[in-house]
Every structure is written in structure tokens, then in C-alpha cells.
Design a protein around this nucleic acid. Structure first.
Lengths: 196, 196
DNA sequence: GGTTTGGTGTTGGCAAAGCAACAGAGGAGC
DNA sequence: GCTCCTCTGTTGCTTTGCCAACACCAAACC
């Protein structure tokens, strides 16, 4: 029935209409948020701006908040892609890129988010951590040394929250020195942990 | 079956999908023409750029030339709309606007059309005359004085070709004076005819 | 000559988007 | 209290777009 069940199939094939409709919805959402913020934004407005039917919106997203999560995740994934061009392995360089991405993205939030939309910040932050978790977990599974480790989920959880916390702290300001220096110190704390 | 038969109905309602698809096709066509001209342009390319299926293209246009006619007509109609904001009557002011539109549009063609695409100029020019004819005929039918005149088609034919000819002559250059002066002289010739 | 190659235009089956209507949940105004 | 209004999700049915073929044609290419 729903579009999402079809697109969730293992097959990589995606109907071009689904891609186009999703892009239309995301673009309309970004435009409207830039114009008047999240507060008071309705599904009808989004559907109208996207030139799609309101019922079609619900075929792609359960509600406005699911769209919100999707947009934020996509934006942060794009941030990560820019910093990790073609790296498939898990190393210090990758972890450093993730720290930098979290710092920059969460910093940008403080300036971009208007006062009235402050209530949405926790939702965004949760998505950032979730994306870090997913990326770490995929890396750990793909890694030959750590493969099949039963503690993969725990490791991914701990490290993702650690990176997220470092980024959030930087975004709140007050840290001396440059971002690169801060990232290095945070990274050594993440890698070394309490054992260092 | 085809989309065109549905949209040809008297009802003003148009499916949003039809509008969107047509706009995608037209935009893709304009982009590709701007990039590499008409020559060698294929339907597959247009459909690909428009992110629609090739079969869908044929549901909207019989072939590439029908799309070509549609785009040119739409562009010239837009040119007319800009010069005739909200006039519904047929008077000297409207005829003057049509002359000016024809002059400007056909002049722009000489500079925009590349050498290799010169073969398409007659097609464009035919569309310009056809649009002038349609507009004149609608005006004549709506006019209370000339209504029901059996000679409406003949009048529209003669006047539309006259305006078109004046515009084509101006577009070929060599006319002294300003465009406004030329339009006034052409207009008096059109209105007065041989009787003046 | 023969044979790929690539574009054209068409068709039938199926998936996605549109539409109109519905019940339900607030919120504003009286 | 009450009504009016708007937005939310949801549903059945219709329309449009997608896909994978197909036959045909013309220009390479060998």
C-alpha cells in the first residue's frame, strides 16, 4: 500500500517518481522553514509548496516530525560525506572527521535556529547522535578485526555519544584554542578513554 | 488513454501531475537547447534530463517538433502577456502592442539562434503568426460590433500576417529611426490598409 | 552485401500520485 | 456550555507515470 514498504525492499531499484516526490517535499520543507520557521508549519502548506497531494505526503512520511528527522539526518550525512570522501575504514582520521563534523554542525545550529524554534534542537541533536551511531556500527561490522564482535553495538553507542558530547560542548562555546586543537584533545580522550 | 485527450476536455481542472510533467519537459528542453542547440537533440535526452520516462513524453507530445511548437508559442504568448496586462478589447493600443511584441521577439531570434539552428527559424516564425491569429480571432469574436461576422477568419488572417510581416521586416534590420516610430508607421499601414 | 547500434513510436500491466470524502482533535470566538 | 473553523490522518477509487518489451528505421561499421 504505502510507498515506504516498497522502497524498503532489498532491491536497489527505486521508482523515479518516489525520488522526485521526496525531493519535492524536502525542498518545500526547507524553503518554508527558511521563510517562517517550524512553528505553525502545516502538512497542507508543505504539500502545496511541493505541488503534491496531502495524501501523498502521508505515503512518504508518517507525520511532519518524521520528515523533520529525515531532513536533519540527510543534512548531517551530507556534512559527513564532504569530510569523508572515499574512506571505508575506521581509523583515527575518520574519527577526527566525525568530531569536526559534529562540532561544525551543532555550532551552525545555534546560529541558524531562531528563538521560537529552540524547542526543536533536542530532536536535531538526537538525529546527529543516531547518524554517528549508524556510521560507526557499519564500520565496525565491515572491519575484519572487530567483525562478529558481540559488543559492536555497545562500542558504537559509547563512541557515538562521546563524539556527540564533544561536539555539543564545542557548540556551546567557551572552549579556548582552535577547533582543530579541541578536536585533537577530544579525540585522544575518546580513543584513550579512562585508561589514558 | 492519452493525457492530451483528458486535458482537452472543457473542464478547467488539470491534474497537477500533468502540469508538473509538462513543466519538467519544457525546462529540460530549454536547458538542453541552451547547452547544445536543437540539432542532434533526442527525445531520450529530453526525457532523461526531465527525470520522466520516455513513454511519458509521448503521452504529452506527439514528437519533438510538437514540443518545439509548444515552447515557442508559450514564449511568445508570455511576451504578449507582458505587453497586454489586462486588456480584453481590440483597439489601436492592443494592435500596437502586438506589433512591438512581434518586432522584439523576432529580433531576439536573430541573435539567439545559432548558425546551425537556422533551419528552425521558419518553424518559429510560423508559430508567431499563428499566435497572433488566435489572439486576433478571439478578440474579434468577443467584440460586440464585429461579432458573428463571417469574415472574422479572413480579417484575423490578414491582420496577423500583416503584423507578422512588419515584425519580420524590423527584425532584419536596416530600418531607420526608433522601434516606436516604426511601429506607428506599420500600425497606420495595417489599420488604413490600401485605402489610406 | 550483412550486422550491429541507437533512436523512434507504441502497447499492456502495474505502481504511485491525485482526489474527494470521512471522523476526530483541538482552538477561537460568542 | 456551544458552534465554527482548520488541521490531521485515513480510505476507496481514479488517473497518470513507469517499465519492459516490441517492430521499425537509419546510420554506422566490418
Amino acid at each position: 500500500m504505502s510507498v515506504k514498504e516498497i522502497s524498503g525492499q532489498v532491491s536497489g531499484r527505486v521508482d523515479p517518481r518516489v525520488v522526485r516526490t521526496r525531493e519535492l517535499i524536502v525542498r518545500a520543507f526547507n524553503e518554508l522553514v527558511a521563510e517562517k520557521g517550524h512553528t505553525g508549519l502545516t502538512v497542507s502548506e508543505i504539500a502545496g509548496r511541493a505541488t503534491i497531494n496531502r495524501a501523498t505526503f502521508y505515503a512518504h512520511f508518517a507525520d511532519q516530525y518524521e520528515l523533520f528527522d529525515y531532513v536533519v539526518s540527510e543534512a548531517f550525512r551530507e556534512e559527513l560525506r564532504r569530510r569523508l570522501p572515499a574512506s571505508s575504514g575506521l581509523g583515527e582520521e575518520e574519527l577526527r572527521a566525525m568530531v569536526l563534523a559534529a562540532c561544525d554542525y551543532l555550532s551552525g545550529l545555534n546560529t541558524a535556529c531562531s528563538r521560537t524554534d529552540r524547542q526543536f534542537k533536542p530532536l536535531i541533536e538526537a538525529r546527529v547522535q543516531a547518524e554517528l551511531y549508524e556510521l560507526l556500527l557499519r564500520w565496525i561490522w565491515a572491519s575484519p578485526v572487530n567483525a562478529r564482535s558481540a559488543d559492536a553495538e555497545i562500542t558504537a553507542t559509547v563512541v557515538s555519544w562521546a563524539i556527540f558530547g564533544a561536539g555539543l560542548r564545542w557548540s556551546q562555546g567557551g572552549e579556548p584554542g582552535s577547533l582543530e586543537e579541541y578536536a585533537d584533545r577530544a579525540l585522544s580522550a575518546i580513543v584513550g578513554g579512562l585508561g589514558s
